[in-house]
């Protein structure tokens, strides 16, 4: 590749963006629904890691990517339940539970991979096939990007964003989740069990994080690697913080982070400039911090104006 123009005009670049944004969308949706229920859920990172491994293991066991994804989702829900049980039933500090689960997950996956294969990092999976939709794929550019080389989970991520918006606004459970996040005591006072609502929200979050993990090992790559999540769960949290709790905006920022990530991966192939890949690797994280700061400044300004008005 010769220039930035080549990079930005290649279809592959956009496909990479979408592929890299998908796990962030899952993670940010998990963060969103936890946050709506008033819980800061930092165990998403660990949940994604565990379910990435579970997905890889069961996809090879049943020789089917779909089974792997389903069981990874169940594993995510299970992790969500551990988180919910500890925070709500045992009254443990959310952040401490999150740290505990992340430590647990990081060790557990290495332990399991070693017990199964004898090496400490990789476990191959049965990858998900890409979907090529006839007719639609013939649309120039858009068809090539959206309907030719993506897999089922990418479309599922898009559906989940839309469904999440609908779920939180229009369904009884969604509205209950939001009100628990605002004032749990008020919800209890009208006879709804706020703890139960919180647990349901955290289970959904676990399932979403599980799908994100499964996407990493089954959809994006064809193997599990112990370092493959690399802070994506935390970037999901950041996207949620910047998205101010609105599903579409959150997803948009997940895509922005996906773009930066894709750029940092592919910019190495441009011959004209010579940025070492180590420094390009810092980009997604730097942009996340900058995004958080910009969002905080805007929020502060708005608050000031509100007080004045």
């Amino acid at each position: 590749m010769n220039s930035f123009w080549d990079l930005f005009s290649s279809v592959n670049f956009y496909v990479t963006i979408i592929s890299l944004a998908t796990p962030l969308i899952f993670a940010s949706m998990a963060a969103l629904i936890s946050n709506k229920a008033g819980v800061v859920n930092i165990s998403i990172e660990g949940t994604m890691l565990v379910s990435a491994l579970v997905g890889a293991i069961f996809s090879t066991l049943f020789n089917s990517a779909i089974m792997g994804i389903l069981i990874a989702c169940v594993a995510g829900i299970l992790m969500g339940y551990i988180f919910a049980f500890s925070t709500i039933k045992l009254r443990t500090n959310e952040i401490l539970v999150g740290i505990a689960l992340n430590i647990l997950a990081a060790g557990l996956v290495i332990f399991i991979v070693y017990a199964l294969t004898g090496n400490k990092s990789d476990y191959s999976s049965v990858p998900l096939k890409t979907i090529s939709i006839p007719l639609l794929r013939d649309i120039p550019i858009i068809g090539e990007i959206f309907f030719n080389s993506l897999n089922l989970l990418v479309y599922l991520a898009i559906v989940i964003v839309i469904a999440m918006s609908f779920f939180l606004k229009k369904t009884v459970l969604g509205i209950r989740i939001r009100s628990v996040g605002m004032n749990a005591k008020a919800v209890d006072s009208i006879g709804v069990d706020s703890e139960k609502v919180k647990i349901i929200a955290l289970l959904i979050a676990g399932g979403l994080a599980g799908l994100g993990g499964a996407y990493m090992s089954i959809g994006f790559m064809s193997s599990f690697n112990t370092g493959m999540i690399a802070g994506r769960g935390f970037i999901g949290l950041a996207a949620e913080a910047i998205g101010a709790g609105i599903p579409y905006v959150t997803a948009l920022f997940a895509v922005v982070f996906g773009l930066v990530n894709a750029f940092s991966l592919t910019a190495q192939t441009i011959t004209g400039i010579n940025i070492p890949y180590e420094l390009l690797n810092t980009l997604p994280y730097m942009v996340t911090i900058i995004g958080l700061v910009v969002f905080a400044v805007i929020k502060k300004r708005r608050n000031k104006n509100n007080i004045k008005g």
Partner: peptide, 14 residues
Amino acid sequence: AQEVVAIIQGVIIL
């Protein structure tokens, strides 16, 4: 594998 410690640590903290 020595990573069994992670399980102990996680449970203890929780």
